[in-house]
């Protein structure tokens, strides 16, 4: 028994290591978001003939806690674009509010809402870049899908530093490691995206989400999927991963049932 009052009600030092009193700190300099709190994991997207498909699961984690299991991380922007958010959820909601106000303003304007996905991506990447330059980043990595000014399928990414890039298929977070190799194998980049059907693209995304669900500990088997074509945006929320096979788990020590 430890008789010193400062250690009462705290984890025992001899078992859990020295207690870090920094967690008790409540005052200090003004803190910007120096690290994300409630987060969403990967967003994945792929171009196909005549459109783009994008998917993200419905989980918002708080550290390792699966905090909210019904969070929609794909946001439709006025029938012309979809934005997929990973990273901090509160910053996502802030950016969502920005998009909402733009949408309303544009719809009240005389020319109507003419912003396409490319315009939207330019706007959001500039918001992200400005915030990182103020050392107050929006802790997100986003994918923007839709069509560009020439009515060609558009898919591009922007991260918390304002870095932007595009490719026929993209993924954020863990997806960059697990989903992109699968997508690159299924749809080689030297093959034109016109060869990819909508069905193939959607099937591939579902397959990637399944792999992420198997291996990304911050993922969920409930997800949203959006398909954007000339006809408009089709968002399916509350999807569930089907035909899961956990057979591989048996071969992994500590994952399956075997003890030795």
């Amino acid at each position: 028994m430890n008789h010193f009052p400062e250690s009462w009600g705290r984890p025992r030092d001899d078992i859990y290591g020295t207690y870090n009193p920094a967690y008790l700190q409540s005052t200090g300099p003004k803190a910007h978001t120096q690290s994300p709190a409630v987060t969403g994991t990967s967003v994945i997207a792929v171009k196909f003939n005549g459109g783009v498909a994008i998917a993200a699961d419905n989980l918002a984690s708080y550290g390792s806690l699966a905090r909210f299991t019904d969070v929609k991380r794909l946001r439709k922007f006025s029938d012309t674009a979809v934005v997929g958010f990973s990273g901090d959820v509160s910053d996502m909601q802030y950016m969502d509010r920005l998009l909402e106000s733009i949408d309303i303003r544009e719809n009240y304007s005389t020319h109507g809402n003419m912003l396409n996905a490319k315009n939207l991506h330019t706007y959001l990447s500039k918001v992200l870049y400005k915030r990182r330059s103020e050392f107050n980043p929006l802790w997100n990595h986003i994918l923007v899908v839709g069509f560009d000014g020439d009515k060609k399928p558009f898919l591009s990414s922007a991260d918390l530093l304002g870095t932007t890039y595009s490719a026929p298929h993209l993924a954020t977070g863990f997806g960059a490691h697990l989903a992109v190799p699968i997508l690159r194998r299924l749809f080689p980049e030297d093959r034109p995206t016109e060869d990819i059907t909508k069905e193939d693209a959607v099937k591939a995304l579902r397959e990637c989400l399944k792999v992420l669900w198997y291996r990304d500990a911050r993922s969920l088997d409930k997800y949203s999927l959006a398909i954007i074509t000339e006809e408009g945006v089709e968002i399916k929320e509350d999807q569930r991963l089907e035909n899961q096979s956990w057979a591989f788990a048996e071969t992994i020590r500590g994952y399956g049932a075997q003890v030795v």
Partner: peptide, 23 residues
């Protein structure tokens, strides 16, 4: 102050945001 000497305050933990990356 308290009868114990171990401080309940520690210097602020600073995990600062690094605004650059190398592409």
């Amino acid at each position: 102050g308290y009868s114990f000497s171990q401080s309940t305050h520690a210097p602020n933990k600073q995990h600062s945001f690094y605004p650059y990356t190398d592409n």
